[in-house]
């Protein structure tokens, strides 16, 4: 009987300590948070003349390609509005839209334009939305550095390489002067906007080669292509930029992907815009969200550059801001 009491007591004391630990943690964090807030308030006067301090929460989801930009934006936004709680998931473009349609998010990041079926579902759910452009990305086709033959490909050749035709593909099938070795394919997963975009501009609706290895984690693709002479893959420009020593970027129609060719649109058709879709009703009702979107459009260019994407011409951000103003 005493033993049983001892157990209850241990359990009670144990959980009390546990909860107390959680509690004090929270108190500690809040303190540091407010400290941060005051620090930045004194520091950021140069960039901003006294903005009203807002409270509220903003939630988003969507493309993992766009996520680094959002993360950077949320980070610097905290300095301006420490009380606004912005959160964003990274479920992929398709997964993000599903949540957007279910009304669970205020904004949805996308690395491709919204699809018709998604539009229809949004209309059905009664959700009005507006599309904003955030930055450019150059969808980069990469090969192993030991591959010296396929450094330049035309769109037709890319199509020939990537479309499923029921045969096992060898490099020599594309050009007889190339080695007769089997091509290994690495592609982003089907829920990603990167895949959808490639599907649209290169595959043109045809099926992707069945032997392709699909992965939601782009680093798996990098490792795969870097590890085999006969491999070919594609993904966002940022991943190529971080691995230039391990990979060779294919010149598409003779144009090499770099920040200049991507911004000017010369790297066509694989230069693509990155989007954020905002819920109109939330822009109207949630002052914090409007403020965050305004902040996003003002700073997306700088942040995009910082995390490996290419900024839009300033006029396009201006245009976005004008559209946003009309939705207030």
């Amino acid at each position: 009987m005493k033993k049983w009491k001892y157990l209850t007591m241990t359990a009670v004391v144990g959980s009390a300590l546990f909860l107390a630990a959680c509690g004090s943690n929270e108190a500690g964090e809040k303190e540091t948070d407010t400290n941060k807030g005051t620090e930045t308030n004194t520091g950021s006067e140069t960039t901003n003349n006294e903005v009203a301090q807002l409270t509220g929460s903003v939630s988003g989801d969507g493309s993992s390609t766009v996520a680094p930009i959002t993360e950077a934006l949320v980070e610097i936004y905290e300095e301006e509005q420490p009380e606004v709680r912005v959160s964003s998931g990274v479920s992929g473009t398709g997964g993000g839209f599903e949540k957007f349609i279910a009304g669970e998010t205020d904004f949805s990041n996308a690395s491709r334009p919204i699809k018709d079926e998604e539009k229809a579902k949004l209309a059905e759910a009664g959700i009005d939305y507006t599309e904003f452009l955030l930055a450019y990305d150059g969808l980069t086709v990469v090969i192993n550095p030991e591959n010296t033959w396929a450094t330049e490909l035309t769109v037709e050749q890319l199509q020939q390489i990537w479309v499923e035709d029921g045969t096992t593909k060898k490099w020599s099938d594309i050009d007889p002067s190339w080695p007769a070795e089997e091509i290994l394919f690495y592609s982003p997963g089907t829920d990603s906007g990167t895949y959808d975009y490639f599907d649209e501009v290169i595959l043109d609706g045809a099926d992707l080669v069945k032997s392709a290895e699909l992965s939601e984690d782009d680093n798996v693709l990098v490792t795969g292509v870097a590890g085999d002479k006969n491999a070919i893959g594609f993904f966002g420009y940022a991943y190529y930029l971080e691995n230039t020593d391990k990979l060779t970027a294919v010149k598409v129609n003779g144009v090499e992907p770099n920040s200049e060719t991507i911004e000017k649109g010369e790297y066509s058709p694989l230069s693509r815009p990155l989007f954020v879709y905002a819920k109109n009703s939330a822009l109207k009702d949630n002052e914090a969200f409007y403020n965050f979107m305004e902040f996003t459009l003002k700073n997306a260019g700088d942040m995009a550059g910082e995390v490996g994407y290419v900024r839009l011409p300033d006029a396009m951000y201006e245009e976005g801001l004008k559209t946003l103003e009309g939705l207030k």
Binding site: E26, K30, D61, A67, E71, V74, R85, V86, S88, V90
Partner: peptide, 14 residues
């Protein structure tokens, strides 16, 4: 992941 827990956030649950 399925529930949709966010990854990008800079606040603690209150």
């Amino acid at each position: 992941v399925v529930i949709g827990i966010p990854v990008i956030l800079r606040f603690l649950p209150d």
